[in-house]
């Protein structure tokens, strides 16, 4: 099968949905963070593909920005997970239910 430009688009949407499912259905906070990273990387793939379709480098530059931001966000998030683990001794999102009506 010859490579065509719609293929990475479909792949990007699939990766995005897999990441979203990971955030919604998995209970481990670290796995949820992996899901978020998958969603961000799916957007990167979309940017790069559209960049190729439009014959412009904009999208490729965007994907580098996104990587930097994803790293910063992961750093902040892991810090929060560690702080939570110190107080509650768990990374399971089901057992974190102190705040509710």
């Amino acid at each position: 099968m010859i490579f065509q430009l719609w293929m990475p688009l479909v792949l990007a949407v699939m990766i995005f949905l897999i990441g979203l499912m990971g955030v919604i259905f998995r209970r481990n906070l670290l796995i949820m963070m992996m899901g978020i990273e998958l969603m961000l990387n799916a957007s990167n793939l979309l940017f790069v593909t559209f960049s190729k379709i439009h014959q412009r480098v904009d999208g490729e530059v965007m994907s580098i920005f996104v990587m930097a931001i994803a790293a910063a966000e992961a750093a902040a998030g892991l810090g929060l997970v560690i702080a939570l683990f110190r107080t509650l001794k768990t990374v399971n999102s089901d057992s974190i239910q102190l705040l509710r009506d």
Binding site: F47, F50, M62, L84, L99
Partner: peptide, 30 residues
């Protein structure tokens, strides 16, 4: 632990919606 829990809830929701923004942005770019 309440403060940590609030931060983590905000972080997970905020990041997921950040990813939504980015995906939408890529589509608008497309």
């Amino acid at each position: 632990s309440r403060s940590n829990e609030a931060a983590l809830k905000y972080f997970v929701m905020g990041s997921v919606l950040g990813a939504f923004y980015l995906f939408g942005c890529a589509m608008v770019f497309g």
